[in-house]
Design a protein around this nucleic acid. Structure first.
Lengths: 192, 192
DNA sequence: TATGGAACGGCACGTGCCGTGCCGTTCTGT
DNA sequence: ACAGAACGGCACGGCACGTGCCGTTCCATA
């Protein structure tokens, strides 16, 4: 009997899917590459050939979900645009069902430089750049105080969200996002 | 020959010391309880009897360093008081030589609820409470806008610091702390 | 259409650490 | 003086690691 052999990319997808499934069932901690390979019906080599570690695999699996999902449209209103951008990121990664996995992944990045680098390159930097670009455009249109540090503004927007996700481990609601935006812009509007 | 036997608390201290030493030498990731016990000249039971996991041991070892170190004096100026409080926490845990360990520990808290709970109870909550209490006192003295959410202010102070520590993994300088304080209070001062 | 090489699934191996027993010894409280 | 707890040392089974080797299947090239 000739088993229909799957193509390379189909295997890659099957492994990612198995990783996400097992991750949601058992949690990241008790997750082994052995188990993922078994679930995907694949040899361990086939996994190791593609990813160097459990963290790299999970990160890739998780971030493959977004792709275009993290784009957002422009309304002309800075606050509204930022709100939408943050809502989408928060809903995807800090909402069900992927919050625990994303959380564990950021945790893993604290031990594993490879995961940290990949996380920064594929998610953190793109998001931060988008935020700063939008702020910059607003500042040039006179909607913001011209002396405000945009990188700092970005950190003040992002920081409390990660603080909630990682430290207090409370849910990230839209209402919380709104409050941060409100507080930030209270101090950022141009002075009369 | 009768080996001089160490008392219980002396053993506890010796194990903590060994854990911190090995943690700084090898990094948290490649750290085993076996190795810690060996370094401390102690049986594994003696470790397991005191701590339930590597994370619990490391957290205890690290936070035992502060004790009274995280107290600070009152100057009457909110910003100055908060600055001192944050400096001290940042210098101890996010400065050399303990930054990598603290970082890994917060990472561990993402997988291990026991570590997360201990971290919250022994460090996060006390720090947050202190900050909020100081803000509250200032507000009651009319130094702050009366409608500002103090918990949110605390998150805006803490969030960017953890963002730097965990996400962008840049050093936490006093200068950065100052900029956050400045930005926050720009939006918090009472309106005329 | 024939052929070599790459990728595959399956299996087994040695390694490291886990957490837990059991031993005989040493200290402590009563 | 004595019982019991805590100790250091050792050995154990278990698990997942990462890496070999096997024979098979697919694919590119000639």
């Amino acid at each position: 009997m000739t088993t229909a052999r799957r193509s390379g990319s189909a295997l890659t997808e099957a492994i990612k899917r198995a990783a996400l499934e097992l991750g949601q069932e058992s949690g990241y901690a008790k997750l082994s590459i052995e188990a993922i390979a078994a679930r995907a019906g694949v040899g361990k080599h086939t996994v190791y050939r593609r990813w160097s570690s459990k963290g790299a695999l999970m990160l890739d699996s998780l971030l493959s979900l977004d792709e275009s999902a993290l784009d957002y449209s422009e309304t002309g209103d800075v606050v509204e645009d930022l709100r939408r951008q943050i809502y989408e990121a928060v809903d995807l990664l800090a909402g069900e069902p992927f919050r625990p996995l994303f959380q564990s992944l950021v945790g893993e990045a604290q031990h594993d430089p490879v995961v940290a680098a990949a996380l920064t390159e594929r998610f953190i930097t793109p998001q931060a750049d988008k935020t700063v670009a939008r702020l910059k455009a607003a500042r040039e249109q006179g909607q913001l105080s011209p002396d405000f540090d945009l990188d700092l503004a970005m950190a003040i927007l992002s920081g409390p969200l990660y603080f909630r996700l990682l430290i207090t481990q409370e849910p990230l609601t839209h209402e919380y996002v709104d409050r941060i935006l409100e507080a930030l812009f209270a101090g950022m509007r141009p002075r009369r």
